[in-house]
Nucleic acid binder design. Structure first.
Lengths: 196, 196
DNA sequence: ATCTTGCGCACTAACACTCGTTAGTAGCCC
DNA sequence: GGGCTACTAACGAGTGTTAGTGCGCAAGAT
């Protein structure tokens, strides 16, 4: 009957994950049911299990994909040769853009990770902690070099990351502001808070 | 049998709401069950219904209590005679303090409101939108008076509110930073982003 | 001071679902 | 013909919530 796999270059599993990401964001992981998901995919609930192993496997796939993407980017930026301030700007821009065009995925990694089963939960939180630590170190370096004002690095990281994740409010209600303007204004605000 | 009402000056309903706020934050509204809640209260699930009408009534109580508190404060600040910049600082500080000592409640109003049933959902979102609009107007006024740099007000509101709600990461893992230092640093960062 | 009444509150049992997931089966394509 | 993959049916557990019952304490009547 109704085959899945609507687009080429995307396995059925990928289709399921993509539909799931929309659903998990709208209803939350706990409130979204497999029957719900199946309907959006165009299939019976039991058929999903030909492609995935469990509901939480979907969540794992989403969370770790996002985490890896951010981590990979961080490493690239760290290895680059720029001002510390420009490095931070680059990272901030990547976060904003990810939030703009991979919204569903990033949102879930940001808000639904708590439903990960162990040991994935601990693993994820470790990665997260390490990522933030490295961001903090970068800021500390910027302060040391006199490029940034003396702010407690941990707080700065908190403010920056949270501020960006607030784009989710913007996504919900396509307001007057355009995506480009949003990015520009946000970078301006955040970098200004750092700059000496 | 085992009576509820451990403390004076707090009805049994209040005790239930308080325990529920902890539970809803830890597990999410959808994943927290009435039997869970009952156990924390020290009572059978069915007994809860002598004091509340439904699970979602608890959510409503929490969300609107928080919303009203913020709204009341905003009106007080608006009516006061200060620099626009100082008004913003006052509002930011109230948000931070609420996040520090009414953490569970604020968190739920911030993240679990989507599980409100209609018509409460629309009502809540309207209040929220109106609140942010008025914050935006305040910033616009500040720009007009030359106290603040020219930033798109909507974006600024987004950044500020989201940044503060990120304190939840801090609450989860009592880090090196103290509450006072956190508040000071955060205000510094955010106000600096606004100031001309 | 004792008895009576009534109400507040917690109990057990149950209903009517919904949940994630598994077993077993049959059709379609290489 | 043999994998894939989608189907139906069903499982056991857990969901919010209601019905009906009885205990215990406070107020009112004698």
């Amino acid at each position: 009957m109704a085959k899945i796999q609507s687009k080429k270059n995307s396995t059925k599993k990928e289709v399921i994950i993509e539909k799931a990401s929309k659903l998990f964001r709208e209803k939350g992981f706990g409130a979204a049911s497999m029957r719900d998901l199946a309907e959006h995919v165009g299939v019976e609930a039991a058929s999903l299990y030909n492609h995935i192993q469990s509901k939480s496997e979907i969540l794992q796939a989403i969370c770790f994909r996002v985490a890896n993407e951010f981590m990979t980017n961080l490493e690239a930026v760290e290895a680059s040769h720029q001002t510390t301030l420009r490095k931070m700007e680059a990272i901030i821009r990547v976060h904003i853009r990810m939030m703009l065009d991979q919204y569903e995925f990033v949102y879930i990694a940001d808000h639904e990770w708590r439903h990960l089963p162990e040991p994935y939960l601990s693993n994820f939180l470790n990665q997260r902690r390490s990522y933030r630590k490295r961001l903090g170190d970068l800021i500390e370096e910027g302060i040391g070099k006199g490029e940034m004002k003396a702010i407690e690095p941990y707080t700065a990281v908190l403010v920056i990351l949270s501020a960006i994740s607030g784009i989710d409010s913007w996504q919900r209600s396509r307001k007057s502001t355009s995506a480009e303007a949003l990015e520009a204004n946000m970078v301006k605000f955040l970098i200004e808070g750092l700059k000496k």
